[in-house]
Amino acid sequence: MLYSKRQKLSQALLILFFVILCTLIIYPFLLLVGVSLSSEKAIGQYGYQLIPKEWSLASYKYVFENPSAILNAYKVTAIFSVTAMVLSVLLMAMMAFPLTRKEVRARRALSFFLYFTMLFSGGLVPTYILITKYLHLNDTIWVYILPSLISPWYVFMIRTFFQDLPEEIFESVRLDGGTSYTIFFRFVIPLSKPVLATVALLIFLGKWNDWYTALLYIEDESLMSLQYLLQRIMQNLKLLQSLEGSASMVSTEKIPSETVRMAMAVVVAGPALVVFPFFQKYFVKGLTVGSVKG
């Protein structure tokens, strides 16, 4: 396709706009990395600098002092994040679809049923009692997955997309003798790749960063999630740094703390960023109705 001069110009402007925008957005992140690669002493003297005045990998060394724990946390987190993502997207799509069909008389009631839980909650204590005392999900990997499988927010988002799908598709499937199952699994899902991929990504990210679940429900070291493990390292650092815990350290070196905090943030965010491009391939420009009609 030949692009006119005007189109080329507008494209160039577009790109310039995003370059500026992204630089602003990424700046704090670069600062983060910069601090993590600096020595603690330099931070004390000069404050946060984009380019470290004194390079040092001490912070990363500290974080990875016990590599087996972190690697295990990576593994555990990856497992439950992926599992939750797959199950959750599937189940929420299954929830959303009936809400768009006129045959389902109860769809208004069901929507309300779902939405009510977004605002009203019994609170942490009853949920805690339910999960630990009755369902015994604590200290298992399922506690990361099951309670949060259905998020009304995402269900409504998916429902909106489903509503926008053209009705002709469904009619033609019906004519061919298909059932709602056929419509759903063979057509609705494939046509909704963009939204399902988006929701999948968001769920994955949410799970990847989850630390609260582990804090409340996990005591078994081998089941700790990544973010929680890193928070612990941070807490222990603070403790070692404070007068209370210092009795335990034999060495007299000052403990790196700010740089470690930043190194941890990089350690957590890094892999998630690597994953993102994988989702991007599902952001395919919409299929035309014509292709289905044929």
Binding site: L215, L216, R232, M234, Q235, N236
Partner: peptide, 9 residues
């Protein structure tokens, strides 16, 4: 229990 989480826990 991690000192940071102790109160909550």
């Amino acid at each position: 229990i991690d000192p940071g989480a102790y109160n909550e826990k």
